[in-house]
Design a protein around this nucleic acid. Structure first.
Lengths: 207, 207
DNA sequence: GTCTATAAGGAGATAGAC
DNA sequence: GTCTATCTCCTTATAGAC
């Protein structure tokens, strides 16, 4: 970390950590200033309002997440089960390196309809993202038609994948506190979960 | 609803709704008083602190949830797949009638280690609850030994069930806002999810 | 750009009149 | 038991000196 660094950038970095850890409501501009080592007025000098600062970070995180989640959907020509295995693996690994992110996003969406419609607009503002469901749907239903997988609605398949992967990371802080597992035990546990989830999803599709 | 009612009881009822809807941090004692129709000092008169009031309600909800979730585990003598189908169905229906409860509990546990250890102690204070995992484990592993289901750790099976059922209700507010579905469409959607989840779990166990 | 000081409002909790 | 008034603390945001 450079000793001398753009203060605006330092504020963004500290705020990002605190928002993800404690949420919007649980983070004060004073907390952010303290973490940076400056005074609270400076946070407002650079971003005027706490909401502005938050949306800056929130949007950046949404963009990062979307691009990583959309990328593995290409390579359409590979075997469907291989592709599925790969996609779930990438999603799992992404959350593994950003464990606080799923809860952060979910928490800011639930019970805040303005933020929810902000995310909806964000999603629809880009054609790749806006067509995402259609893309997945055509891939899945082609396989159903070919008979490679059992008849299933795309909504159900997508929700199965999201539920099984995301839920692990939503509850990871609970696992950490209650299990008392070491770093290595935890890695083993997560690897085991990942394999089990992939197994379950594939077993749920085979005819 | 009786016109004249114990004020303490009214405070409990109003606080319960607000806490489940907006969380601990998102609910002020002034909000509670306003909903009851009394002044804010009375909330503190009956429960002294907001934390006291919250724990009162939180514990009651935990007890309700536990008894409902433990009950269907008896009737050990029925076929395992029938039993599993029944258990998942009961869990799903319970959350369907208490849709805000899963997020409420999760939200208060994440990033609040005091509350997490409170729940842990609560869980361990009752022998049925404390032995719950052992009970499930012996049922599951007996079936594995008999060969009725494929080899699977009990942890994985339990987490699969919880992930698939709970996640639906965590994200239900998002579904409601974004889908614009009618009451009836929503009921249909949830019924479809329930069937799919049961199908997936059973497919994931058959040899 | 960076600081101190402060305004304006909301929170939880309590004192004391009735 | 119920009320009003108030204390203390913390929040976001801004004004104004340097």
């Amino acid at each position: 970390m450079a000793a001398e660094q753009n203060l605006e950038e330092q504020i963004l970095q500290s705020a990002e950590k605190l928002f993800i850890e404690n949420g919007f409501a649980g983070t004060s501009t004073t907390d952010i200033a303290k973490k940076v080592g400056c005074n609270q007025a400076l946070v407002h000098y650079y971003f005027r309002t706490k909401e502005n600062l938050f949306l800056h970070i929130f949007t950046k995180k949404l963009e990062q997440a979307c691009s990583i989640l959309i990328e593995p959907l290409s390579n359409i020509e590979t075997d469907f089960y291989d592709k599925l295995r790969y996609v779930v693996s990438v999603y799992f690994d992404f959350m593994d390196s950003n464990p606080g992110l799923p809860f952060f996003v979910l928490n800011e969406l639930i019970g805040n309809s303005e933020r929810l419609s902000y995310v909806y607009k964000f999603f629809m503002s880009n054609s790749v993202r806006a067509n995402l469901y259609g893309t997945i749907d055509s891939i899945v239903q082609k396989e159903v038609a070919k008979g490679t997988i059992r008849p299933i609605t795309t909504v159900n398949l997508v929700l199965n994948v999201i539920s099984l992967t995301v839920f692990n990371f939503l509850t990871l802080p609970i696992y950490d506190k209650l299990s008392g597992a070491s770093e290595q035990e935890r890695r083993l546990f997560m690897a085991e979960r990942k394999e089990e989830i992939i197994t379950l999803i594939i077993r749920g599709l085979k005819k």
